[in-house]
């Protein structure tokens, strides 16, 4: 057996000059970005599972739970939910337009999605202001604690989504997406659909039941 540590031999050990960067693709036929965004969404699902799980536990352990319909403006929020679902549809249209390479349509559908997202946030902020004006803040009771935590984190996600889509819009304006290269639109879209889906769930358990 030779000495444990092999010595330096310039003939084999010296780095070669002038070589390309070797980059291989081994995985399933899905782009790295898309693969990563699915992983990211998995973490998001776990995050909201933590929040929703806590809500379910606290609510089922509580001796009494206020009727959400009495405390919350369900009709306005139902309209808001409808808005957000609509924005998922406009987002799908935007992704189709991006894949077809139609820049004008892409910009228009993206703008629609951003506008609807922004209105959703505005309506939610309006609801918050009303509630806070009435004195309904997290420290009043556990209902408001959970309400603000869940809708607040969702709202933050919508704001992030609107900012993200705006960045995509500006890139599209500069012609950043082509028929072959439009992953950026799709990734933002996936996130946007996720945020919508979470809202449908939250609306159901926080407002309706």
């Amino acid at each position: 057996m030779s000495e444990a540590l092999a010595a330096y031999d310039p003939a084999v050990d010296a780095p070669a000059h002038h070589h390309p960067v070797y980059d291989y693709d081994s995985g399933p036929p899905v782009e790295r970005g898309k693969f990563a965004i699915w992983l990211f969404l998995a973490t998001e699902i776990m995050f909201f599972s933590g929040l929703i799980g806590a809500y379910i536990v606290l609510r089922s352990a509580a001796k009494s739970w206020p009727d959400p319909q009495e405390r919350l403006a369900v009709d306005i929020t139902a309209f808001n939910t409808f808005l957000l679902i609509t924005s998922s549809w406009t987002m799908v249209k935007a992704v189709f337009a991006a894949k077809a390479g139609e820049r004008g349509k892409l910009l228009a559908w993206l703008a629609a999605t951003i506008a609807i997202g922004a209105s959703f946030v505005s309506i939610q902020v309006y609801e918050y202001i009303q509630l806070i004006h009435e004195g309904a803040i997290p420290k009043i009771d556990i209902f408001w604690s959970t309400f603000y935590a869940m809708t607040g984190f969702h709202g933050t996600h919508v704001v992030v989504g609107v900012i993200w889509l705006s960045c995509v819009w500006f890139k599209a304006l500069g012609g950043g997406y082509t028929v072959r290269n439009n992953l950026g639109v799709e990734l933002a879209g996936l996130y946007w659909h996720f945020v919508d889906l979470v809202w449908v769930l939250l609306f159901t358990i926080v407002y309706l039941f």
Binding site: G50, L51, I137, P138, K139, D141, W144, S145, Y148, A149
Partner: peptide, 20 residues
Amino acid sequence: PVLTAATFMQLFDRLFDAGF
């Protein structure tokens, strides 16, 4: 992410007097 959710709830309790 579950810990992150839980730390946020604890922060809510501490900063906004929530009652989780």
